[in-house]
């Protein structure tokens, strides 16, 4: 059974249809790409999956349960985490605090306990700190844990955002153009890391990219979105030769034969 499945998802803004007939499914453990030219509706689709936008119609099912109409924080608690195209870190907080906030939903102590600072508070806070630092270590950010996140270099901000999303303990991770603004070497390393994260954390990942050559190597299946509609779906080889996809990308300089 698919872990995340949508059917007939539609989003209209006033008279404008941003996304229509958005049907995708993600099987457990898959790494799926969602590609399409700029303005195709990829981020709008993400916003529906994470509850930021309420779909105009259609259904979203997470492990068989409908999550349409739920608040973003409820959906996160149910197991979908995301990053943002234009990084949204808590800029004026330290690197470790960024991650600790994502652990909040699992905190057991109440407000009164927090104010009285009982042993339960002290223990749990120590545990959160230790978990957060351990997670940062995986992303090679632990040595910068007390720096303000806005002072990190761009690539590290991207990594921190992924680390923060993982701290919510998701089943499905949605990455919105994680390679935007990176050079080819950084992009390559990032794609390697994403694959490694998927295996290590046993995740299902949906990845947005508008540059399709990037996802060809890492993704097992690819959906192509154009003008708000899924126009193609399949393994990278099929997508590469699909005439509809080539047409959608015409005008954009994409080297379809690129292997890397």
């Amino acid at each position: 059974m698919a872990i995340l499945e949508t059917s007939n998802l539609v989003k209209t803004f006033g008279g404008l249809t941003a996304v229509s007939k958005f049907d995708i499914y993600l099987n457990e453990g898959e790494l799926i790409g969602l590609i399409g030219p700029n303005g195709a509706g990829k981020t709008t689709a993400f916003n529906m999956l994470t509850g930021v936008y309420r779909p105009s119609s259609g259904s979203i099912k997470l492990m068989g349960e409908s999550i349409v109409g739920q608040k973003p924080y409820e959906i996160t608690q149910k197991g979908i985490a995301r990053t943002f195209q234009n990084i949204r870190l808590f800029k004026d907080l330290t690197v470790v605090d960024n991650v600790k906030i994502a652990y909040h939903q699992n905190v057991k102590y109440g407000v009164a306990t927090g104010i009285l600072q009982t042993k339960q508070y002290v223990d749990e806070e120590a545990e959160i700190q230790q978990k957060a630092v351990a997670l940062l270590k995986i992303f090679n950010l632990d040595h910068k844990k007390n720096e303000l996140s806005k002072n990190l270099p761009y690539g590290e901000q991207r990594r921190l955002e992924i680390a923060r999303a993982l701290a919510t303990n998701p089943k499905v991770l949605l990455l919105d153009e994680p390679a935007a603004g990176m050079n080819p070497q950084e992009t390559h390393d990032l794609m390697e890391m994403i694959r490694w994260i998927r295996d290590q954390f046993k995740l299902t990942i949906l990845l947005i990219e508008h540059d399709m050559s990037l996802v060809m190597n890492v993704c097992e299946r690819i959906y192509v979105l154009d003008y708000g509609k899924i126009i193609a779906h399949g393994c990278p080889e099929d997508i590469r030769t699909n005439p509809k996809v080539i047409e959608a990308y015409l005008g954009e300089e994409v080297d379809l034969s690129a292997e890397n």
């Binding site: 924080y73 608690q77 943002f84 800029k91 004026d92 906030i101």
Partner: peptide
Amino acid sequence: EDEIAAETMGINT
């Protein structure tokens, strides 16, 4: 810091 990011971190804003 960022209400939308907070919400997607599972916080009932």
